[in-house]
């Protein structure tokens, strides 16, 4: 056994923090990102409810946020974070930048998934006199379902990566553990354990996502 300065409880707590950050920011990120992704598709030129205004604002805004590395976003929006959750440190505080970070990412991925839907399906929908809402609900989303599962898999894995930086604002989590103990205190054991945990987490989520995607495609 290698020398280590942390306890199993600390690892479990860190894991819980990571899962909380990922889960909560995935939830709010999706609540924001999915509608934005849908808007990008239906609002685009030739879309179901074509809107030059919405598209020409939304598209660049998403690009701008997407171009910021998470670590920059994290510190840049500290005032905003403080305004929203009344604090700028801790797990809760980390969730705000995580949501801002992942929402545009999810929007883009959802956009791509929906754009993959066979245009013939939309033509059929239109020929049936479906309303724009019905087109989205009864045609676009069900047809993109399998692809959307993979979208959320990718988003979740991206979030796990981002949470590692949340330590900067005292967000805790596995990544924080790896940096403060494994890196800064040269605790090789922590380093190995945290890497293994992250590896298992990412692999697990990816293979669950793949399996669900295949099932949705009935392969």
């Amino acid at each position: 056994m290698m020398d280590t300065t942390i306890t199993a409880d600390q690892i479990i707590k860190a894991l819980q923090e990571t899962l909380t950050m990922v889960g909560v920011s995935l939830l709010f990120g999706s609540l924001l990102g999915v509608p934005l992704g849908i808007l990008l598709v239906v609002g685009r030129p030739g879309g179901v409810i074509e809107s030059k205004l919405v598209y020409s604002i939304l598209n660049p805004v998403i690009n701008i946020v997407r171009s910021l590395p998470f670590i920059i976003l994290l510190v840049a929006i500290i005032p905003f974070t403080r305004f929203v959750v009344q604090t700028s440190i801790g797990t809760t505080a980390a969730i705000v930048p995580l949501v801002i970070y992942i929402a545009p990412y999810i929007a883009r991925l959802v956009e791509n998934s929906l754009l993959e839907v066979n245009p013939g399906i939309l033509e059929a929908a239109e020929s049936m006199g479906a309303t724009p809402f019905q087109v989205i609900w009864h045609f676009l989303l069900p047809e993109a379902f399998a692809s959307l599962i993979l979208t959320f898999t990718t988003a979740t894995i991206t979030l796990i990566g981002a949470t590692a930086m949340a330590g900067t604002v005292g967000g805790g989590g596995i990544g924080d553990l790896a940096i403060t103990y494994g890196y800064q205190r040269f605790d090789t054991f922590v380093m190995i354990v945290t890497v293994l945990i992250l590896l298992v987490l990412v692999q697990g989520i990816q293979s669950i996502g793949n399996r669900m995607g295949r099932k949705a495609r009935r392969e």
């Binding site: 013939g120 033509e123 059929a124 020929s127 047809e143 399998a146 949705a216």
Partner: peptide
């Protein structure tokens, strides 16, 4: 309306 490539929903 019916189509050359059927345009059925694969998910249903």
């Amino acid at each position: 309306m019916i189509f050359q490539h059927f345009n059925l929903l694969e998910s249903k």
